[in-house]
């Protein structure tokens, strides 16, 4: 009689496992919080909570994040933002350096070392509500709205107020207060 109860126990446990296995998949090797690309993706996601795009007329119904070049950050963004929305819009994440894609983006993530090679006239992006995030050791005065930097094994960020202003987006005072250097 005792073993009947045990078999039921086993069965129900497995049942709940199967149910859950079909329901949701999330874990993976890059889902480690201390992984640099994961952490950067989370920074980007958190930035969106402090930025207002409402004054910008976006041409499509998606929230587009463009990542320049091959980067682990793309995979981390896809993994983290799967089935989520930003600013009430479904999210599209693409790797591209074409002006056409970039012009439709709300966030342009410029991967390390590609900012100088980026063949885009930044002036053409002014006023289009594009948050340009870089990951250089020093902020790129022409390009960066926000630069994510690593110091002593931790990530922080800098804000370039003039580029923010040019882009047409608005950022919260809380974001400013957390930034490392405010220009």
């Amino acid at each position: 009689m005792k073993y009947k109860a045990l078999f039921c126990f086993l069965f129900l446990l497995l049942l709940s496992a199967v149910k859950e296995t079909h329901g949701n998949e999330f874990q993976g090797p890059n889902d480690d919080l201390s992984n640099e690309s994961t952490l950067k993706a989370l920074f980007v996601y958190n930035f969106t909570k402090h930025i207002d795009w409402s004054t910008i007329n976006t041409p499509n119904n998606k929230f587009v994040i463009v990542v320049t070049g091959k980067s682990d950050v793309t995979n981390s963004l896809i993994s983290i933002l799967k089935n989520r929305k930003i600013q009430e819009k479904p999210i599209e994440i693409i790797e591209s350096t074409s002006l056409e894609d970039i012009q439709n983006a709300q966030i342009l993530f410029v991967t390390r070392g590609t900012s100088k090679k980026l063949d885009v006239n930044v002036e053409k992006l002014s006023g289009k509500g594009i948050l340009i995030v870089t990951e250089e050791s020093r902020i790129n005065a022409q390009l960066s709205c926000i630069n994510i930097i690593e110091t002593q094994g931790k990530l922080s960020f800098e804000i370039n107020e003039s580029n923010i202003k040019k882009s047409g987006i608005k950022i919260s005072s809380q974001l400013r207060s957390l930034a490392r250097n405010e220009e």
Binding site: S34, N35, E36, L39, F43, N46, K154, L155, L178
Partner: peptide, 20 residues
């Protein structure tokens, strides 16, 4: 500490995480 709950992580939390 779990990425499962990343919605609850603030920028301040993220800035305190050490990169491996």
């Amino acid at each position: 500490k779990s990425l499962d709950n990343f919605d609850t992580l603030s920028l301040q939390d993220l800035m305190n995480i050490k990169i491996t």
